[in-house]
């Protein structure tokens, strides 16, 4: 028995990938996550998929939220997922995508391993609730 109290926190990476300079949404999400008691790492703008993978692996996040408003999700998201698999980090990372994603693409992203896609106007509570319900268990 450990006498110390375990202090678990849900860690999230809020990531902006590619040529997309709009991060107001990402900021709002980051703050909402913080207020929900999560620990949020924000990637900053214009990151390459590799950078996101590096951050997700090193920070050992439970949740990776990718915000894409550029329309390049079909190329960028698979690259991130590839990279996570390379580092053996795909299985226990909850991957979320936020942005304007057409329905067909959404199905394809989910097939690749994205847990959920949140479009514009999604209430913040819904996203937070989804994370709480689906955050991968760690043994």
């Amino acid at each position: 028995m450990s006498v110390e109290q375990e202090e678990r926190a849900i860690r999230c990476l809020v990531a902006k990938v590619g040529l997309d300079g709009h991060d107001r949404g990402a900021h709002v999400i980051a703050r909402a996550f913080r207020d929900a008691g999560f620990e949020v790492v924000y990637s900053g703008l214009h990151r390459a998929p590799d950078d996101i993978v590096q951050a997700a692996v090193q920070e050992d996040v439970d949740v990776l939220g990718i915000s894409i408003l550029s329309g390049a999700h079909n190329t960028l998201v698979p690259k991130v997922i590839e990279g996570l698999k390379e580092y053996d980090a795909f299985e226990d990372t909850l991957i979320l995508v936020g942005g304007i994603i057409p329905d067909d693409d959404e199905d394809e992203l989910k097939r690749l391993g994205v847990a959920e896609v949140f479009g514009p106007g999604t209430p913040m509570e819904e996203t937070i609730e989804f994370i709480r319900d689906n955050v991968p268990e760690r043994a």
């Binding site: 926190a9 980051a30 703050r31 996550f33 913080r34 207020d35 929900a36 008691g37 999560f38 620990e39 949020v40 790492v41 924000y42 990637s43 900053g44 990151r47 390459a48 590799d50 950078d51 590096q54 951050a55 090193q58 920070e59």
Partner: peptide
């Protein structure tokens, strides 16, 4: 809330993609 925004990583522009720099944010 116990929550935190760990923002130091944003400044790590010179080392992104270099896995030999292991950067870890702690709250």
């Amino acid at each position: 809330t116990g929550g935190a925004v760990l923002g130091d990583r944003i400044r790590m522009g010179s080392n992104v993609g270099d896995m030999d720099v292991f950067f870890r944010s702690m709250s």
